[in-house]
């Protein structure tokens, strides 16, 4: 993804603000693919730029995160850049799944915090890196149809590089609302740059392979 070169160095105040607004819009409108304006930032290969930009926008010293073992470079990058601390998958505020196609990564997702009935906001935020997100069908992808708050009637979106097991796992994690996890699917697109789409715990997802 080093082919994507942005003009300006990353600015934590203004890029952080813009990216937050994109993430807020995306979270408020599940299925909307938010484009994060890229900025000059040396990101390790294990992370896509969208994931890195989300971490830059939201993580700080009082945040904990987990990324699959073996992704040491990515973990180091996030720690250095944001001062967030690393912890186990069952404890963290943010769980990063670097590759949705890896089965063990989804097992970690299964351990993510779902909060308590008194404090459901303690449920983790999960960032899942996928190959591509698109409002139009792509080769070898899943068709997601989404309903719930933020969606007028139904939104259809296509995702590649994500197994059906991911959505099965999310469905079982979010079965007892208000308990649950909230998800950002991220990818880097050649045309649109770093992208993120949100699936809050309130979104009902139906999927089919196309």
């Amino acid at each position: 993804m080093s082919t994507l070169v942005a003009a300006k160095p990353y600015n934590q105040v203004f890029d952080g603000q813009e990216h937050y607004r994109t993430l807020l819009q995306a979270t408020a409108r599940p299925g909307m693919i938010g484009q994060l304006d890229d900025a000059l930032l040396d990101v390790p290969r294990e992370l896509n730029r969208a994931t890195a930009l989300i971490a830059m926008a939201l993580f700080s010293a009082d945040t904990s995160f987990h990324i699959a073992p073996g992704k040491a470079e990515a973990a180091e990058f996030i720690q250095q850049q944001t001062a967030a601390t690393r912890s186990g998958p069952e404890q963290v505020d943010f769980l990063i799944v670097p590759d949705a196609m890896q089965a063990d990564a989804l097992r970690e997702l299964d351990q993510a915090r779902v909060g308590s009935l008194a404090f459901p906001d303690m449920g983790a935020t999960v960032i899942v890196q996928v190959a591509a997100l698109s409002p139009a069908p792509m080769a070898d992808c899943l068709r997601l149809s989404l309903t719930g708050p933020g969606i007028e009637s139904e939104t259809v979106v296509f995702v590649s590089g994500a197994p059906e097991l991911l959505f099965e796992t999310l469905r079982s994690k979010n079965i007892e609302f208000p308990l649950g996890v909230d998800v950002f699917l991220t990818c880097d697109s050649l045309s649109a740059g770093p992208c993120a789409m949100a699936l809050p715990r309130t979104t009902r997802v139906k999927w089919a392979r196309v």
């Binding site: 934590q12 105040v13 203004f14 952080g16 603000q17 937050y20 993430l23 807020l24 979270t27 408020a28 926008a57 939201l58 993580f59 700080s60 010293a61 009082d62 945040t63 505020d93 404090f119 459901p120 906001d121 449920g123 935020t125 708050p149 933020g150 208000p178 909230d182 809050p200 715990r201 309130t202």
Partner: peptide
């Protein structure tokens, strides 16, 4: 600082706001 609040605290407010969007009507501390 830009917009008065320091960046560390802004991020905290932003994270909580995102959670509020995810759980409509629930009060996030």
């Amino acid at each position: 600082n830009y917009a008065y609040i320091d960046e560390f605290t802004k991020k905290e407010i932003r994270r909580k706001t995102l959670k509020a969007v995810c759980i409509p009507g629930y009060q996030v501390p």
